[in-house]
């Protein structure tokens, strides 16, 4: 079986790092590997998503389909082909012009 391809939804504050793309495809069988794939292609995202120890920053909210990964298996949450993964900002933030 090939590695699942998923759709990542990028919040407006981060789109300057993804060439203004609101959705980006990535491959990975877990949230962790899909985000690694994303960051490899868009390195400017790294400091937004990870702390210096390489862990996901505490305030970064990731949803897989209907669910916050905090209530699933965290970064180890398994992904299937076609899953919708969203990076949802905390309340503050904004959109690049």
């Amino acid at each position: 079986m090939s590695t699942p391809t998923v759709t990542l939804h990028i919040p407006t504050p981060l789109r300057s790092a993804t060439n203004d793309q609101a959705t980006v495809n990535a491959t990975g069988d877990t949230v962790r590997t899909a985000l690694q794939n994303l960051v490899e292609r868009y390195p400017d995202l790294k400091s937004n998503l990870y702390n210096d120890d390489g862990a996901l920053r505490q305030f970064v909210n990731i949803y897989v389909d209907d669910e916050d990964i905090r209530y699933l298996d965290g970064p180890d949450t398994a992904l299937t082909d076609g899953a919708e993964v969203s990076i949802v900002p905390s309340i503050a933030g904004g959109r690049s012009r």
């Binding site: 919040p11 407006t12 504050p13 981060l14 300057s16 790092a17 400091s47 937004n48 998503l49 920053r57 505490q58 305030f59 970064v60 990076i87 900002p89 905390s90 309340i91 503050a92 933030g93 904004g94 959109r95 690049s96 012009r97």
Partner: peptide, 19 residues
């Protein structure tokens, strides 16, 4: 300002990526 575009500081703006 917050150090990154994505942050957890309600009410504050990261101006390079906000209005």
């Amino acid at each position: 300002q917050p150090d990154t575009a994505l942050h957890g500081l309600e009410g504050l703006k990261h101006l390079p990526t906000a209005h």
